[in-house]
């Protein structure tokens, strides 16, 4: 078993300082990253690069997706290999400045009511303290500005929203909260997430929305899209939100 030390020091996917980078994911995937930390331009670059991958539709590519600042590509090992695909990715990367890409079209602003604190956000006080704010100031900060859907991921239709002010660069907790419900608003590392399913999590649970982000029975099963913006506002009656269409959220087109 010790014979693999050389493998570990020769990793092809080492953390690098220059971006964009191409790294392998598992045995049949590539990740093209445009930054090492959350970054607005890198986020747009990732969305645009993924759209370009879809347009190219290289043979053997099984699936593409984006995360916050990266585009992911999974391929069929029977149909292509790492060297050929890496070369194609390098060529595509060099073909333009991806950081100049505009945001996707058809974006919307969603106004979303949230019940903060109490039973519906039991870690609000803890999160506010980590951010150096009172509970009241924390709610005011989180509702002051729209946050953008930087990516959809983890669970179906689930948005990663950001970016929050620097004092909200708070770590995830070391243990997992065994369960937070669908629609929960959680926070860590200058981001908010609204959970699309009930789930265990390492993020801190600060509030509850009535949103149903994934509706498998619907024509369009996913409520939010990358690039959409979300402006939260405090509410106090969760049952009413849950009964309302789209959890009481209303959308308008962004121009």
């Amino acid at each position: 078993m010790a014979s693999d030390q050389t493998t570990l020091t020769d990793l092809p996917n080492a953390v690098q300082t220059g971006f964009p980078t191409i790294r392998t994911v598992g045995v049949d995937g590539f990740l093209v990253s445009f930054a090492g930390a959350l970054d607005e331009r890198a986020n747009r670059a990732a969305l645009a690069f993924r759209a370009a991958l879809e347009r190219e539709s290289w043979p053997g590519v099984a699936e593409c997706a984006t995360s916050l600042v990266s585009a992911f590509l999974r391929f069929d090992l029977a149909a292509c290999d790492h060297d050929a695909l890496r070369a194609r990715l390098e060529t595509l990367l060099a073909s333009r400045n991806w950081y100049d890409a505009p945001l996707p079209e058809g974006r919307r602003l969603w106004r979303v009511p949230v019940v903060f604190g109490g039973d519906h956000g039991p870690q609000l006080a803890e999160a506010a303290e980590l951010a150096g704010q009172s509970e009241g100031d924390a709610i005011a900060t989180l509702c002051a500005q729209p946050v953008r859907v930087q990516t959809i991921g983890f669970a179906p239709g689930q948005p990663y929203l950001g970016q929050l002010p620097e004092n909200w660069d708070i770590p995830r907790q070391t243990g997992l909260t065994p369960h937070v419900p669908e629609g929960a608003l959680v926070v860590a590392i200058r981001q908010l997430i609204v959970f699309s399913v009930g789930t265990p999590t390492g993020w801190r649970h600060i509030g509850q929305t009535g949103l149903r982000l994934f509706r498998p029975e619907a024509e369009d099963p996913f409520l939010l899209r990358p690039g959409d913006e979300v402006l939260f506002h405090p509410a106090d009656d969760l049952d009413r939100l849950r009964a309302a269409r789209d959890g009481g959220a209303v959308a308008e087109a962004l121009t």
Binding site: G29, G36, A65, S67, T151, F154, I189
Partner: peptide
């Protein structure tokens, strides 16, 4: 505990 959320397989 503070790394960026990234693609999982």
């Amino acid at each position: 505990l503070s790394i960026l959320s990234e693609t999982i397989v």
